[in-house]
C-alpha cells in the first residue's frame, strides 16, 4: 500500500483546494492518520473510496474524541539582549491549545484487502462550532456511528440523513461522553482509598454533620 505522504500528494492534486495534514503517531502501533479539512472532506472521502489503487470501500470504525483546552509547555529559542549582548536564549513558553472535538474514521479495503487508513476531522471549537460534514453519503456504515457521536459528543453532522439521538432518550440534553460532563449524583459513593472517588464521596455527603468525617475504611 502507498505511504500516507503519497496518498496526501495524490489527493491534494486530485481535489483542488484540499488540505491534508499527516498526524504522526509515535507509539509502537505506528498508525499515523490523515487530518482532512472539513470543507473538502466529502470529496476527499470519495477520492479515497473510488481511487483504483486505494479502493477504501469499507469504513469500519467511526468514533468521536473530545480534546479539552490544553496548555503545553515548550522551550523556544528567543533572541534577547542579555547584559548588553544579543544572545540566543532558551525560554519556556506556554501555548494554549483551544479544545475541539474530533471524528475519527478507520478505513479498510475489501477489494484489495489492505488497511487501516485513519482519517480525522476536527471541529472549530467545542460549542457552537461543533459541526462537521457527514460522510454517511460516502460510507453507509457511518450512519449509526455518526448518530452515536452526535448523541454522546454533540458533533452535528451536516448532510446526515437522520441525525437524532440514538442511545440516550430524546429529552436528554447533555453529551455524556464529553470529558467535562457531570453526571447526576444519584448514589452513595463507597469510601475507598482512591483519592478521586473519596473526593466525590465527600462531595456527595456534604450536608452531613462535620463530626462524621469520612475516612476510608
Amino acid at each position: 500500500m502507498e505511504s500516507l505522504e503519497q496518498i496526501k500528494a495524490r489527493a491534494e492534486a486530485a481535489i483542488p483546494g484540499a488540505k491534508i495534514d499527516i498526524v504522526p503517531n509515535l507509539g509502537p502501533a505506528n498508525q499515523p492518520s490523515l487530518l482532512i479539512d472539513n470543507e473538502h472532506a466529502p470529496a476527499i472521502a470519495k477520492f479515497l473510496r473510488d481511487d483504483p489503487t486505494l479502493r477504501l470501500d469499507f469504513c469500519s470504525n467511526v468514533t468521536g474524541v473530545d480534546w479539552l483546552d490544553r496548555v503545553t509547555k515548550k522551550t523556544v529559542k528567543v533572541k534577547k539582549v542579555v547584559e548588553g549582548e544579543e544572545k540566543e536564549v532558551n525560554e519556556p513558553i506556554e501555548e494554549r491549545i483551544p479544545g475541539y472535538l474530533e471524528a475519527v474514521y478507520h478505513l479498510f479495503s475489501m477489494a484489495h484487502k489492505h488497511g487501516p487508513i485513519t482519517i480525522r476531522m476536527r471541529t472549530r471549537d467545542r460549542g457552537e462550532g461543533a459541526r462537521l460534514p457527514s460522510l454517511t453519503p460516502v460510507w453507509r456504515s457511518a450512519e449509526f456511528q455518526e448518530r452515536e457521536i452526535f448523541d454522546l459528543y454533540g458533533i452535528r453532522f451536516d448532510g446526515h440523513p437522520d441525525l437524532r439521538r440514538i442511545l440516550m432518550w430524546d429529552e436528554f440534553e447533555d453529551h455524556p461522553m464529553r470529558k467535562d460532563y457531570v453526571q447526576p449524583d444519584d448514589f452513595e459513593w463507597e469510601p475507598t482509598p482512591h483519592d478521586d472517588v473519596l473526593a466525590r464521596a465527600k462531595q456527595h455527603y456534604a450536608p452531613r454533620p462535620a463530626e462524621q468525617e469520612l475516612r476510608p475504611s
Binding site: W169, D170, E171, F172, E173, D174, P184, D186, E188, P191, Q212, L214, R215, S217
Partner: peptide, 24 residues
C-alpha cells in the same frame, strides 16, 4: 419520566427507603 438530565424522580420514596449509611 425521562428528564433533561436524569429520570424524574430518581427514586420512588414510597418503595425505596435506603438504610442510613453507618460510617466509622
Amino acid at each position: 419520566a425521562f428528564g433533561k438530565h436524569d429520570l424524574e424522580p430518581p427514586a420512588n420514596p414510597d418503595v425505596f427507603q435506603p438504610p442510613e449509611l453507618k460510617r466509622v
